[in-house]
Design a protein around this nucleic acid. Structure first.
Length: 598
RNA sequence: GGCUCUGUAGCUCAACUGGAUAGAGCAUCGCACUACGGAUGCGAAGGUUUGGGGUUCGAAUCCCUACAGGGUCACCA
């Protein structure tokens, strides 16, 4: 609901009182954009009002329409179609609004800190494998939601929790010791995360071999899987790590640092960043303390074997384990610790947003409930930003079947496609290699980001590496292309000596296409707010596309540069400036950059 | 099996959270234009919104039910 809707709702309330003698509230007035096949700009749905007017929908609409035209200077005309009252707004209103947008650099963007402080967690990888397509959706989503929340006025702290300890890390460590021959990222030229991932795979291969051998010796599969020597080694290493054995800790630190170097490069390519990093190795002990405290206060209980649980059956949930009988932490343990630590790290934090796949919905439901029971203030405001899996044509990604789409590979491929496309079109041949490189990344990565973000987060989505990411149609490159040609045209206007610093517009110049384009642009602030409230970048993506599409259509037959009539030209220049600026702003919230040329 | 999410054009997705004749892109077919940057624009075709009930002035949207698919119910993360 924008300013105009509020104003019209207020008028309609007054009209109801004047016409029917009933007092209602503005919330009872249903307003919507008039569908394009009818005359008018805004529509009042009159059905709900008929029980107040005690008249037919048509009669009710007509009465209100008459009153509004007579008493509200913004309403130029009305038309009743069935139960819908279509209002035409005076053109000067749109012109004024456009000029207002024009003067604002941050139209639709709230001042930072005008709303609460929130934390957004995303990425949160394990340190034993490189990032893949699923992480890309996660990262783009988390980063974009952060930007959108900022745009809506929140102070945002971007964080991740790095799962840097546990049996999975030890597997890579054991394999590297056995088969690595001292290989390092420097010696091999392999990216650090790829190197460590390689040994994780090597572990798995060796493990399977050993299991097969044991089974050949007559041992049952489930037993063999528990007895495989290399697995026992990994478990022993985890134990030594927890004891703080220097040699093991040193190896752990070294290999994790390789991974962080590798991840760092990928994050830079992706264009995402973090304000603070949390490491599981730092927080899992805090979680244990919290569990101990909760046991003390009676929120948790201990079973005979010494394991600690919480009973959530009152909440319609299960009993949930919080500490193993041997006293070691589980996933939930450390998440409790991390959550509480974050509140003390950032006083005044209103809520935490966890960008994590939908397979963990139950986990977060339990986590938030536990936090509430522990008496954490505002725990119920936390939000699990749950998103659906990215599926491939052949089904789910399976590392065992080699169907995992690697993040680095995919990014490179995208930039390569952008290169092929641009080379074929041959419009940027005079750019330097460095400029081209930047451009191909802007376009290629932009296409990928847009593809992953334009779908509502909650839905699982299909990704066909060969066919999915287009550069035409509803895509980032289409939007970028229109931005570029708008910018190019504006530059030519300047070159031609046209005044581009315009502060007044003759309201009589607009045609219906243009009025529609202006109205599209006016929906931006409401879009930002809605996207922030729903943690949904797809709303921003759709807005950017709709605006661009409307612009592209308009551009086709509305000349600017060569327009002789100066007041028409001025109006079109302002319109183009506003649209281009808004497209850039919107795409920026998706983490997508606009090139200067393409 | 319990809980949960999802089901919309051949394909990938929308639909301002209950409003008018359900919209885009891709693919297909046709058309336009000296192109302010053609990575373009316009049009055609394509739908019983999975089926069946219900609620109401009005349902893709809410309720019930059946079917189909995903997720989850670990001393994994």
């Amino acid at each position: 609901m924008d300013a105009l809707d509020q104003r019209l709702a207020q008028s309609a309330v007054t009209a109801c009182e004047a016409c029917f003698g009933v007092k209602i509230t503005p919330e009872q007035i249903q307003l919507q954009q008039t569908r394009k096949e009818f005359d008018g700009d805004r529509t009042v749905v009159v059905f709900p009002l008929t029980r107040h007017s005690k008249a037919s929908p048509e009669a009710t609409g007509t009465a209100l329409g008459e009153w509004l035209v007579a008493n509200d200077e913004l309403v130029a005309a009305y038309q009743v179609v069935k139960g819908f009252l279509n209002l035409t707004i005076v053109p000067t209103y749109w012109t004024e609004q456009l000029l207002q947008i024009h003067t604002l650099d941050a139209y639709g963007i709230q001042a930072e800190g005008s709303k609460s402080k929130v934390m957004v967690e995303y990425s949160s990888p394990n340190t034993n494998k490189p990032l893949h397509l699923g992480h890309l959706r996660n990262n783009f989503l988390g980063y974009s939601v952060s930007r959108i929340l900022e745009a809506a006025g929140h102070e945002v702290i971007k964080v991740q929790i790095i799962n840097d300890r546990g049996i999975h890390i030890c597997k890579s460590m054991v394999a590297w010791q056995k088969f690595g021959n001292g290989e390092t990222p420097d010696s091999s030229g392999l990216k650090g995360d790829k190197l460590v991932g390689k040994y994780y795979v090597a572990f798995d291969r060796a493990f399977k071999e050993e299991v097969a051998n044991l089974m050949a010796g007559g041992i049952a599969e489930d037993k063999a899987q528990k007895q495989a020597p290399i697995l026992l080694e990994a478990q022993a290493m985890l134990h030594r790590w927890e004891q703080g054995e220097a040699e093991v800790v040193e190896l752990w630190r070294t290999m994790n640092n390789w991974v962080y170097d590798g991840f760092g490069k990928t994050y830079t390519e992706m264009g995402v960043d973090f304000d603070k990093l949390y490491y599981e190795s730092d927080t899992y002990l805090l979680g244990k303390d919290q569990v101990a405290a909760g046991l003390e206060s009676g929120v948790f209980f201990k079973k005979d074997d010494g394991s600690i649980w919480i009973d959530l059956s009152d909440e319609g949930l299960d009993e949930k384990l919080l500490l193993r009988k041997d006293g070691t932490a589980v996933y939930m343990t450390q998440d409790i610790g991390t959550a509480i630590l974050r509140y003390s790290d950032f006083p005044g934090l209103e809520r935490q947003v966890y960008t994590v796949g939908n397979e963990q919905e139950y986990h977060f439901k339990v986590l938030f409930t536990i936090l509430k029971k522990l008496g954490v203030d505002g725990a119920e405001k936390n939000h699990h930003l749950s998103y659906g899996m990215v599926e491939l044509p052949e089904g789910k990604m399976k590392s065992r079947e080699g169907t995992v789409v690697d993040a680095d590979d995919l990014l490179e491929e995208m930039a390569g496609t952008a290169r092929d496309m641009a080379t074929e079109l041959g419009k940027i041949n005079d750019l330097s290699e460095a400029e081209k490189d930047t451009l191909f990344k802007q376009v290629g990565y932009g296409a990928l980001k847009y593809f992953l973000l334009k779908v509502s987060p909650s839905k699982s989505m299909m990704f066909d590496p060969k066919a999915s990411v287009d550069f035409i149609g509803n895509t980032a490159p289409f939007i970028q292309f229109n931005y570029v040609r708008a910018a190019s045209m504006l530059a030519k206007c300047t070159d031609a000596g046209h005044n581009t610093d315009i502060s007044t517009i003759d309201a009589a110049v607009w045609d219906t296409d243009e009025l529609r384009l202006i109205q599209q642009a006016l929906m931006w602030p409401a879009t930002v707010e809605l996207a922030a409230a729903h943690y949904d970048p797809s709303l921003v993506a759709n807005h950017a596309y709709d605006l661009t599409k409307a612009f592209s259509r308009w551009y086709q037959d509305h000349p600017v540069l060569g327009e002789e009539n100066v007041s028409v030209r001025d109006a079109r220049i302002v319109l183009t400036q506003c649209v281009a600026h808004q497209i850039k702003t919107a795409m920026g919230l998706l983490g997508i950059e606009m090139p200067k040329r393409m």
